[in-house]
């Protein structure tokens, strides 16, 4: 019986080799594996065998059956694949046709930038807050250590709203997001780690300026916060947003509400920070990212906290600018951002 089984396997393999199409394959299958096929017939007498032998033959029979079925399966897919007129052949499609979409939506690039920036800071514990875009002079200027006669408080730089003055001064469109600083400090006991992303307004419009743009502001207030921490957070942001190979530098600068103040530069992504190159995007290998500094003691005081106990840092810059810097884009006319020309928006 054992020999017969082995022979059956060989016969099957030989027959299978010559099979050329599905019809012939089906015939071979019936001949060997069918209900009245050779295997079934051969095994009819197994039941009569002695216990021990029956077990051994049964085991072998199963193995042979598996082998036959596997060989059959292989032959079947082989035929499917290779042969013209087979099912898979008939179901051929042109895989190079353009794909179809469920109707395609688009987010404005500014939204995309805001989401990314928010996420990056969220990972290190900075919470997004909302602050007014139209605010009292007090939060926008006065409490930020800007004297009454500071140029930014003049009509030609800042938009003033035609509403009556209140106890906290005139009402203005915020020219920066720093109004969130004193507002958050007034209502929150440190530690404070917030970011505020908002629309801001300045009185200029030309190919490189728009009267409304977005800024983001970060503020951290706690005990023992120093310049090295500001550097840490700025480096973290720059490397996360722009890529691990970008370097930053702090350049001394001047803002009324921070002391010391810096401008943050990042190596240019186009020329890779070549200081002697002639890059189309940057000046001497560096791009200006934005402003930062240690919160001025007068501002901490205005926020209702003791500058002898608490210190902190703030940073902020334009969202649109940051986005363009990363992509290495110089938009010829930045006004296109808010014209809502769908040919522009649908690219994102």
């Amino acid at each position: 019986m054992k020999i017969e089984l082995e022979q059956l396997k060989k016969d099957f393999e030989n027959t299978l080799r010559d099979v050329k199409d599905h019809v012939a394959l089906e015939e071979v299958k019936n001949e060997f594996l069918g209900r009245k096929g050779k295997l079934k017939t051969l095994l009819k007498d197994v039941a009569t065998l002695a216990d021990e032998e029956r077990k051994a033959i049964g085991k072998l029979a199963n193995e042979i059956k598996d082998a036959l079925e596997t060989a059959y399966g292989q032959k079947e897919s082989e035929l499917d694949m290779r042969h013209p007129g087979s099912r898979l052949d008939q179901e051929w499609i042109d895989v190079t046709e353009p794909g179809k979409f469920p109707s395609e939506g688009h987010l404005h690039p500014v939204t995309q930038a805001i989401s990314e920036i928010t996420d990056i800071f969220a990972r290190v514990g900075f919470t997004s807050v909302r602050a007014p875009e139209i605010d009292w002079d007090y939060y926008v200027f006065e409490s930020l250590n800007m004297p009454k006669d500071h140029p930014a408080r003049d009509d030609w730089e800042t938009f003033f709203v035609d509403l009556p003055e209140g106890k906290k001064g005139k009402i203005v469109l915020t020219p920066h997001t720093s109004n969130s600083q004193v507002r958050v400090m007034e209502t929150t006991k440190p530690p404070i780690r917030i970011i505020n992303i908002n629309r801001t307004y300045r009185r200029q419009i030309d190919i490189s300026h728009i009267p409304m743009f977005h800024q983001f502001e970060g503020l951290m207030i706690d005990k023992n916060i120093s310049v090295v921490h500001l550097k840490g957070i700025l480096d973290y942001f720059a490397k996360t947003f722009f890529g691990p190979n970008r370097r930053t530098r702090l350049r001394p600068h001047h803002f009324r509400f921070t002391e010391p103040s810096f401008e943050v530069d990042i190596t240019c992504g186009v020329c890779g920070g070549n200081e002697n190159g002639n890059c189309r995007l940057c000046k001497g290998g560096w791009l200006e990212l934005g402003g930062a500094g240690m919160v001025h003691p007068n501002v901490i005081k205005a926020g209702g906290h003791d500058p002898e106990v608490y210190s902190g840092f703030a940073f902020g810059w334009g969202v649109e600018r940051t986005l363009m810097m990363r992509e290495g884009i110089k938009i010829d006319d930045i006004r296109v951002l808010y014209k809502n020309d769908l040919r522009f928006v649908k690219q994102f």
């Binding site: 290190v124 514990g125 919470t127 997004s128 807050v129 909302r130 958050v184 929150t188 440190p190 530690p191 404070i192 780690r193 917030i194 951290m220 706690d222 005990k223 916060i225 310049v227 090295v228 921490h229 550097k231 840490g232 957070i233 700025l234 480096d235 973290y236 530098r249 702090l250 350049r251 001394p252 810096f262």
Partner: peptide, 19 residues
């Protein structure tokens, strides 16, 4: 400023909720 190290601030958890 190039001679200042970059240090990640540690500290207590703040309680401000996301808007």
């Amino acid at each position: 400023y190039a001679n200042f190290p970059s240090v990640f601030p540690a500290g207590e958890i703040q309680l401000i909720q996301e808007d």
